[in-house]
Simulated scan of single mutants.
Amino acid sequence: MTNSTQQWTTVCAVSDILPDTGVCALINDQHIAIFRVGQAQFYAIDNIDPQSGASVLARGLVGSFGERIAVASPLYKNHIDLRSGECLENPAYSVRAHSVRVENDHVQIAVT
Rank of each mutant, 00 (worst) to 15 (best):
C87F: 02
A97P: 00
R96D: 10
S4K: 14
V56N: 05
D20I: 01
H98A: 08
C87A: 11
I34R: 11
A97R: 03
I17V: 15
Q6I: 00
A110L: 11
V37H: 08
I45K: 07
T10E: 14
S99K: 04
L88H: 01
R59N: 09
Q41P: 00
V23Y: 02
R96M: 10
P91W: 00
N28D: 15
C12I: 02
Q51K: 13
V102P: 01
Q6K: 12
I69K: 06
V71H: 03
I109W: 03
T21V: 08
F65V: 15
T5Q: 08
S73C: 14
S84Q: 01
G38Q: 12
R101F: 00
N78E: 14
A97H: 04
P74I: 07
S52Y: 03
V37G: 02
R83V: 01
P91L: 06
I48S: 02
H79R: 15
T112L: 12
C87I: 04
A72T: 03
F42S: 02
T10V: 12
D29F: 10
I34H: 07
T2R: 14
L61Y: 04
R83L: 13
A97D: 04
A33M: 09
L61S: 09
N78C: 09
V107N: 04
V95N: 06
H31A: 15
Q30L: 12
L88F: 06
G63M: 10
T10D: 07
A70G: 13
H98D: 07
A70S: 10
M1H: 12
I32S: 06
I32T: 08
C24I: 09
V95Q: 09
I45H: 02
G63H: 14
A33H: 07
L26C: 07
Q30V: 08
G38C: 09
A92S: 14
S94C: 08
A25D: 03
G60H: 07
E103K: 15
V23C: 11
G53Y: 04
R96P: 00
